[in-house]
Amino acid sequence: MSGPNEHHIVPLKTFLGVFATLMFLTVMTVVVAQFHFGAWNTVVAMAIASLKAFFVLAYFMHLKYDDKVFLVGFLLSIFFLIVMYFFSVLDISTRPVLNGIL
């Protein structure tokens, strides 16, 4: 069994590269929001945010290097989030409109 001193050490250069990428993507988020793609604005914004999330999770939170059990746990929580979203949308979009907004 390996000791803690044998954990993977992410090189300094990788962290700085990830930081630069995140800064670039933040600028992109703001720039893209100036254009009007209608409903696509939210999709584009979420796509960029998810790309940023990938870099934070993979490098800052070490999911890329760690034991895969942490990655599986994270993906499970996202899966159940999608389940919650799916059934909520299914419910609300199939309700007969009586009054009010929902």
Binding site: V30, A33, H36, N41, M46, A53, V56
Partner: peptide, 17 residues
Amino acid sequence: LVDLIWIYLFPLLYLVG
């Protein structure tokens, strides 16, 4: 994780078209 949540909150709250 707190940073991660803000990454989503920022475009959703501040930049909706």
